[in-house]
């Protein structure tokens, strides 16, 4: 009988993450039910103010907007990442393509955002070209717009979606696509009915890796957006650093945590769900089998 050393091995990790993850999270929960201190900080007095503030129309609007922007950005990202990951997995020059995706991915996040500031700025790359070619008379406002936020979010998180999709599709047996085609499926049908169900895991991973950070985005709207494109993340940061309203910061953070967790749970449920029609038909087939067993057709 081997000794159970699990606690010994995992001990340091349990300790570390309890202190620096679980406890801070609990503190946030606690703070969200306290009253705001006069000069930052909290007063040790129970209050629902911070939670009431979450329900104000202004905040509901910001939350909905953040959700919609995250959704749109994620869908665009996946729509680009899925064919890209597929092509990379089937390519003979896999390593080169991976390199071309990973180099931007490894390049500092802020520098990548900055690059778009250079491209979209009033005196930037695009406007420079437009002015020089005489297509416009004065520079267009491209930066600090909602469109810029969306574009840069997609740009920044594309590799997060491409890489898990690539690695899932790379493990996919492409003979299955040939089999589907052979059995009468068009290219699109083969993709939808055979490829997608078999790479569900990769799609969910890609969705999570894009949606969650975008939902909590802070730096991108701050740098390439304007006041109107502020997202929940910016709101939280402002409450913490400018308004110094700790309970409100806490309740907002929990709101984001809550939405994120719900999203994850829904996705997990979806992923685990069997295909209803397939199940039903299998049951019918079993009936058929039983009938046949008792006397045949």
């Amino acid at each position: 009988m081997k000794r159970n050393l699990g606690n010994l091995y995992a001990g340091p990790m349990i300790l570390w993450l309890t202190v620096f993850f679980t406890v801070p999270l609990l503190i946030i929960v606690g703070f969200s039910f306290l009253r705001k201190g006069l000069y930052g900080g909290v007063e040790w007095q129970a209050s629902l103010d911070a939670w009431k503030a979450v329900g104000t129309p202004n905040l509901v609007a910001v939350t909905v907007k953040t959700f919609v922007v995250s959704m749109v950005a994620t869908v665009i990202t996946l729509a680009l990442a899925l064919p890209t990951g597929y092509r990379m997995a089937r390519s003979k020059r896999q390593v080169l393509l991976l390199l071309l995706v990973i180099v931007p991915f490894w390049t500092n996040f802020l520098l990548r955002v900055f690059a778009w500031m250079v491209i979209l700025g009033n005196n930037g790359f695009v406007n420079d070209i437009l002015l020089r070619t005489g297509l416009v008379k004065s520079s267009l406002r491209l930066l600090n717009t909602q469109g810029a936020v969306l574009l840069v979010l997609v740009y920044v998180y594309l590799p997060y979606a491409i890489l898990p999709l690539f690695s899932t599709i790379d493990k996919f047996d492409f003979t299955l696509l040939e089999a589907a085609r052979d059995l009468g499926a068009s290219k699109l049908q083969a993709i939808v009915r055979v490829l997608l169900p078999n790479i569900k895991g990769g799609i969910f991973a890609a969705f999570l890796f894009t949606f969650i950070p975008i939902f909590g985005a802070y730096a991108v709207p701050l740098l390439v957006g304007d006041m109107n494109s502020y997202m929940l993340g910016n709101f939280i940061a402002d409450q913490l650093t400018k308004a110094r309203n700790l309970p409100f910061t806490a309740s907002l953070s929990l709101l984001v945590t809550f939405v994120t967790t719900i999203g994850i749970l829904i996705l997990m449920r979806l992923q685990a769900a069997p295909e209803r029609s397939a199940e039903a038909d299998a049951a019918i087939a079993a009936d058929y089998a039983a009938a046949n067993g008792n006397g045949g057709r």
């Binding site: 995992a10 993450l17 309890t18 620096f20 801070p24 909590g216 802070y218 939280i236």
Partner: peptide, 30 residues
């Protein structure tokens, strides 16, 4: 090994990865 806190280890070994960074930053800051 199977031990009492194994489920906890697997949860806290997973959660910080899927929470938005700003939540970790804000909670640690507080």
């Amino acid at each position: 090994y199977r031990f009492r806190l194994r489920g906890y280890v697997q949860t806290i070994g997973f959660l910080p990865m899927i929470l938005p960074e700003i939540i970790i930053g804000v909670s640690l800051s507080m």
